[in-house]
Simulated assay, not measured.
Amino acid sequence: MEYILLTGGAGYIGSHTALELVNAGFNVISFDNFSNSSNEALNRVEQLSGKSIISIEGDIRDAAALRQVFTHHTISAVVHFAGLKAVGESTQLPLHYYDNNVAGTVTLCQVMREFQVKKLVFSSSATVYGDAKQVPIPESAPRSATNPYGQSKLMIEHILEDLVAAEPDWGITLLRYFNPVGAHASGRIGENPNGIPNNLMPFIAQVAVGKREQLSVFGNDYATHDGTGVRDYIHVVDLALGHVKALQYLTKNSGITAINLGTGIGYSVLDMVNAFSQTNKVAVPYQIVARRPGDIATCYAHPDKAAQLLGWQAEKTLEDMVRDSWHWQSSNPNGYS
């Protein structure tokens, strides 16, 4: 039996992708160190799908642990989610981010090569565009990064490009995510951050459910329609389906391809707060505070390449995003615990 290996498969995007993959007929193994995830997410994926998922605890920096997985299972491709992802934390702990994200990816690729597994879907990020000079942002835009998290993603992109230049039989897709939000419509799986959320939507949801007093909006003096930062928010289920399409694309294509996964629509922080309040009929108190270092004014995707190459486009609306976020948070006020 052939398997798709998901590194970080128990995380927010990993667990939603695991569900869409098994629904599409793939067999899935999750390899996760549970530093920012819960095995309960995978238990719930099994309940939702009626299919079993192999869950292995391990760290991508541990080559011996990875070799065990490849030795005991036939892996046809890897979807690589495992990575630390908090922009603010990365500025405090840069070595930790480079070790985990960059060194971990190199180890993963070395073990993949040993076992002649050369199909890889990599979780990249719109942060590789830095403070983009044009929006919507095409894949051809110049790359730079404004923080160590983004820098780690950009370094990995360069490493994978060098790998394919040296060994053209690899097939690698760099999926540059914009801002994933929402949860599965069942309310059974969703975003479950450790401690204080780094992302906007779980913070809004935790304020709405009473876990936090108010939302801090970082800056209201950007050159946007209401002064708050504008981002391309994409429903996590749409994002997960993009990974299914990327894997199907790699069955027929080699080389390396960068593809944006976004909606092509920008919403501001206050747009998100207001949509959440109105759709879900809950109050979200907020205060305006100083800008965060490294934040940019506007960032949204040019999404056409995904439609052309993968036959994929985002289907879910802003209302779907805020409704599903609230359904998850209100059904699971303490996450998976």
Rank of each mutant, 00 (worst) to 15 (best):
Y3M: 03
I4C: 06
G11V: 02
H16N: 14
H16D: 04
T17I: 12
L19E: 00
L19T: 05
L21D: 00
I29R: 11
F31S: 06
D32W: 07
N33M: 06
F34S: 04
S37E: 08
S38P: 01
N39W: 09
E40L: 14
R44N: 12
R44K: 11
K51I: 07
S52K: 14
E57F: 09
A63T: 05
A77F: 05
A77D: 09
A77C: 05
H80L: 10
G83M: 04
L84I: 12
K85Y: 11
V87S: 13
E89W: 04
S90F: 00
L95G: 14
L95K: 15
Y98G: 02
Y98S: 03
V102F: 10
V106E: 10
E114H: 07
E114C: 05
F115N: 14
K118L: 04
L120S: 08
S123V: 07
S123N: 08
S124N: 04
T127G: 11
V135P: 00
P136T: 09
I137A: 05
P138W: 00
P142K: 14
T146K: 11
P148I: 01
Y149E: 06
L154G: 03
M155G: 00
H158R: 12
H158G: 11
V164G: 10
A165R: 12
A166C: 03
A166I: 07
E167G: 01
P168G: 01
D169N: 12
W170I: 04
G171K: 05
G171Y: 00
T173M: 14
L174Q: 10
R176N: 13
Y177D: 06
V181Q: 11
R188W: 10
I189T: 13
N194R: 14
G195E: 02
I196C: 02
V207H: 01
Q214H: 15
D221N: 15
R231F: 09
I234Y: 04
H235G: 05
V244Y: 05
A246P: 09
A246S: 15
S254E: 14
I256Y: 02
N260I: 01
I265A: 06
A275I: 07
N280L: 03
V284T: 04
P285W: 09
A290C: 01
R292G: 04
R292I: 02
T298R: 11
C299N: 09
P303W: 10
A307Y: 14
L310M: 10
L318G: 06
M321H: 02
M321V: 00
V322I: 04
W326M: 10
W326F: 15
S330R: 08
Y336D: 04
